[in-house]
Design a protein around this nucleic acid. Sequence first.
RNA 1: CGGGGUGUAGCGUAGCCCGGUAUCGCGCCACAUUUGGGAUGUGGAGGUCGUAGGUUCGAAUCCUGCCACCCCGACCA
Length: 490
Amino acid sequence: MSKGITSKNEDYSQWYNDIVIKADLAEHSSVKGCMVIKPYGYSIWEKMQSILDQKFKDTGHSNAYFPLFIPKSFFSKEAAHVEGFATECAVVTHYRLKNDGNGNIVVDETAKLEEELIVRPTSETIIWNTYKGWIQSYRDLPILVNQWANVVRWEMRTRLFLRTTEFLWQEGHTAHATADEAIEETRKMLDVYADFAENWMGVPVVKGVKTPNERFAGALDTYCIEALMQDGKALQAGTSHFLGQNFAKAFDVKFTSREGKLDHVWATSWGVSTRLMGALIMAHSDDAGLVLPPRLAPIQVVIVPIHKTEAELQNITAFVDILYAKLKRLGISVKYDDRDTQRPGFKFAEYELKGVPVRIAIGARDMENGTVEIARRDTREKQTVTQEGLEIFIPQLLEDIQNSIFQKALAFREANITKADSYDEFKTLLDEKAGFISAHWDGTPETEQKIKEETKATIRCIPLNNPLEDGVCIYSGKPSTQRVLFARAY
RNA sequence: CGGGGUGUAGCGUAGCCCGGUAUCGCGCCACAUUUGGGAUGUGGAGGUCGUAGGUUCGAAUCCUGCCACCCCGACCA
């Protein structure tokens, strides 16, 4: 048990907050609902960004940047879209402040904007307004653009990383000549997200499609990756939308096809946000703090010297310098913590709290024996190994940790997908086991809504490649052809 | 927007009912001893008690207003 971290079993929600704060990832800012992402937390986000960014580029996308502000009129052009976001928009109405004569700074009412500006909650509208000028011919297509940006959604209730008023994300916005091509893009980016979640974050995800109720405002189809947290609640970790011609029609974006026919452009958009940080934290961490997968850890290996005398430290440091260089050369991020202001025990606890995957401790005893002590964060196991061959042992260990973190999460997820064949069973499972519940649903929004109202569980997705299976809806008893995944969600 | 909290040193808190100028712990600074799992001792620094009024000889404490943030719910990525 770590100092100051609430136990996961005692209060999961508090445990989560404690980890975010104590691991120095982020803190509440003086602006309601907004957080300060601290350097350590931001360095994890930067790793996520750089990996995702490379994947986007590898799949043919380029980055661009569009304005933070969206004229209100643009925003209103797509009916379902405005409906979906209207209640959570920050609006800029003035552009100047003044001194009121009593020493107070007030809004200068004479500086009222002709047209209010919306602080983007997402950029479809400003981007499609822009694309209108970029697209005339099929030769201009496809457009494959991504932007890294901040967005604002004025949520009622916020939680560090999981739901903040302002958050960081990337949003891809693509334009295509055909529906098939757009759908292919939508699915391709979903695969990119799933690959990233599983192979970098070590978080197993279910790929699926949303029901109409849960669909993005303005989309024809919303694909998603759904992850399961340790408390049995689901977390939507990324979405990829097939927008059809909705935005092209709203912004009058047409192109002339090879056949000389004029048609609206087909669109997709896809995004992941700093919410992934929340998923990462909740998926692996324990009561001792954060557990990071090696592939996203800003510090993969920390080396802690243990010494009594200055001579001992020098001896250790001489060895560490060589080891450090060897590991660096392998592309491993290493930190040698030779601060003499903190004792070893303090450092051990601190790096565990911060989720550093591998810790190497070296003392005078080790130097005599030609060994080091290696502790892995995920299992908290310690072993003594020879100094010789560490440059082979450490990379293997990091790989092993990466895999075992994923396998552990996967085993947990598999153990927490449960079939329910009656509504009673469904409700009992929700309260006693949680996790994903695989159940038959009659396909109607009404049934989905009722279940949501009565149990707070939503249909997280209809998994892709879902096996067809005749059954009856757990709620209405009507016939159903496949099971869908329900869960209570973040 | 409903419900519940909290605002006192960098952080966490006691004091408030019953008014008399603020308690303790962590952290911080100095020195010494320490260093294989969050060190110990001694000394020291640090406070407009969220804010604006009111009552009073006197307010962290009583009264009124305001502000902010957190947690739970509805909403949502």
